[in-house]
Design a binder for these strands. Sequence first.
RNA 1: GGUGGCGUAGCCGAGUGGCUCAGGCAAGGGUCUGCAAAACCCUCGACGUGGGUUCGAUUCCCACCGCCACCUCCA
Length: 458
Amino acid sequence: MVRIHDTLLGRDVELEPRVPGRVSIYVCGPTVYEVPHVGHGRTALVYDVIRRYLEWRGFAVAYVSNVTNVDDRIIARAAAEGATEQEISARYEATYWAELERLGVRRPDDVPHATEFIEPMVDLIAQLVASGHAYVIEGEGVYFAVDSYGGYGELSHRRLGDLLDSAGSRVDVDERKRSPVDFALWKAAKPGEPDWDSPWGRGRPGWHIECSAMSLELLGEGFDIHGGGDDLVFPHHENERAQAEAAGHEFARHWIHSGMVMIGGEKMSKSLGNFTTLGEAIDAHGDRAFRLAVLQVHYRSQMELGDTELRAAAEAVGRLDALVRRTVAAGIAVTGVPVADDVADRFRAAMDDDFGTPGGVGVVFDTVRRANSAIDAGDEPGAARLVATVVELAGALGLEVGAGETVAERDAEIDAMVAERDAARATKDFAAADRLRDELTARGITLEDTPRGTVWHR
RNA sequence: GGUGGCGUAGCCGAGUGGCUCAGGCAAGGGUCUGCAAAACCCUCGACGUGGGUUCGAUUCCCACCGCCACCUCCA
C-alpha cells in the first residue's frame, strides 16, 4: 500500500483512491511569462515521478496539470514588449514544454489553459454569488467572502484571526472588501487588458478560481490528489479549496506539496532574480543528472540544485552507464531476465513510504555495486538478474540506463583506431597504442579494455 | 508575531530505540591492467547544544541555539 503525506492532515495516510485502482491527480503548473528555471523543472519532475511510480505500481493514473495564461505578469510583459498576451504566453509555454521534454517529463494527460475554461469558472462564481459566499463590488469585481466558509485556514494550518491580524501589513487592502482576507474571483475589465463576458460585466477571472474550475471539470468531484509547489499552499490552494467546497463541491481528497529549490540558502524565484534557467542546467549537466539530483532528495524537502549537486549526480549517472557497458562487454544478455524480487521489494518499500525516492535511488545504486561484483566474479546469471533489476527500477523512476550514444553507437573511424590500437597492443607496441589512445582521448573518447575486447564511449 | 519544516560524517542526503551496512560525490590505500579506464575491496569520518525518559537514544520528550519557507505574486 502506498502512503502519502497529506498537507491538510499534516500526516501520512494510506492512498485510497476514489475509484479503486485509479488515481486522479491535478498539479498546478506555471504562469508562463518567462523561461522556466530549475525550480520549475524540479516540481514537474517530482510529479512526473509520482505519476510514473503509481503507474508502475499498477494504478491507472489520470494526470492533469494546468498552464496559467492570463495573469497580471503576462499582461505586464505583453505591454512591455508591445506583444499580445497570447504571444507572450504561447512563447513561454512552448519553452516550458520543450525543456520538460528534454528532461523526459511525460506530457500530462490533459493541459488545461485558463482561457479555455472561462465558462466553468463563471458558472462556479455564479454559484458562489447565489449562495452568498461571494459578493460584487461595482467596478471592481466579485469577491469571495472568506467568513462564509468555515473551513478556511485548515489546509495551510492558519487561524482566520491570525490571518486578519497580518492582513494589510504587507499589502494594501481595498477597504470596500468586507474583510481584508477576501480575494477576487472575477476582476472587472481594465482598458487594454484581455476580458470576457460575465454576469458581472466584462472582466477576467482571478487566479485561484481557474484551478478549482478546471480540476473539477476534468477530474470530477472528489478527485484524488491535488499537488503543487509548497509555496502555493497559501493562499492559492487554501483559496481554491474554499471556493470549491463553499460552492458545494467535494474537492481534492489529498493534498501534496513539493519543496522549493534553494540557491545559496535562499529560495530560487523569478522575483528575486536568483535563478538558473532550466535549459542552462540541462545543457551543462545533462537531463539524467538533473533527474537523479532531484530524486536524491525527498520531494517535500527544500534542496540546493546547483552545479555542485548536478556534477555529483552526473558522475553517478556515469556509473549506471558503465554497468551496462561492462555487461555488454562481458557478453551477458539481460533482455527478458526477471528482476530480483528481494531488491524490488526493498525499492517498493522505500517508494511506498511517501514516494521515498532517495531510498529508492539508494536501492538502485546498491544493486549497481552488487551487479558489478557479480560480473567480476563471473556469475553471469546473477549479474544478468541484477542488471535487469537496475534497468527496471531506474526505469520506474524515469531514469534510462545506458541510453543512446553512450553504449553501442557505431563509428567506423573510431572503431578502426581502436582496432589499430589493439593490434599494437598485441605486438606489445605500447608507445603506438598509447598514442592512439591519446588521440581518442583528445576527441572525447574513453577506452575500456575488457577481457572480451576494448569498448569505448564518449 | 503566527504556521510548517530543518540542523546526520569534507560535501549532498536517507534512515532507525540496540543489529555489519543507506546511497551519491570527494579523499587516501589496495586488487585488476603493459599503463590507463571501468570495477571491486579497505580506510577516513555522523547524528546542533543542554537536560530528561530508558538497561540502552542519532532515533522518544522538554528547553535552548541556529537556519529556511509561507503569512504579497511565486513551482
